[in-house]
Amino acid sequence: MSVINLEGIYTAYEGGEKAVIRDLSLHVDRGEYVVIGGPNSAGKTTLLESINGLIKITHGRATVCGLDVSFQADEVRKRVGYVIQNFYFDPFTPFTVEQVVMMGRYGRLGLMKRPTKDDYHAVKKAIHLVGIEDLARKTIGTCSGGQQQKAMIAHNIAKEPEVMMLDEPFSNLDFSAREYLQGVFKELVRTGVPILMVAHAFDGLPDIPIHLVVMNRGKIAHDLNCTAGEVECIIRKECGALDKC
């Protein structure tokens, strides 16, 4: 059974004239690397936020890890890592990178429970994996945009998610950091965690089979399997045919 099953889902914002996601079906299996591309306003971020229940699904059925998103959104979010697209932490944010990474585990821990040795171990491991040991004690607001992005990736890795969703995770990162983190994600995929990544730049994708989803106007225009090297070419071609990327 697929880890993510979307059957004809619709998602609409309150007051919106029409549904942002329309009659969308998608199946993602364990260990798949899904790249979601398409023009602006295609509904890519909305799709990710529908999967973890941050945005309400109005019609259709969505299950993640066997849980119905419409009725068990809290449980779904405990199992799904989600690196959001835009964030900014002001210089006076009173939390260190280490504390922010630990927050990734809070949902799983549950209300009123304190972090245990295992949690501290998972945090240490995530910080090491992303390569930000030197930032651990630094307050997050004093980190650069790229460092904050790495911290948020570590925050979600520390969660030990069953699904990892990334919304333009490399927008502030240089090429070497992108390549390094793609290696981290490749390792996650190898362990069976499916990755769904929304992106506009496709350089440095890992050399593994890619499940490519091209979206346009709230629908999936193309759902196909390809290699990392073919992704940019296909997206450019499809976007050119669909709309301007």
Partner: peptide
């Protein structure tokens, strides 16, 4: 009692919600 949830809310409500914390409660 709710120290970890409160600090997560103080950090960022959306990130706290995405982490699976029962933000509204």
């Amino acid at each position: 009692v709710f120290y970890k949830e409160i600090t997560a809310l103080m950090f960022n409500m959306k990130i706290a919600e995405a982490a699976g914390i029962r933000v509204k409660l």
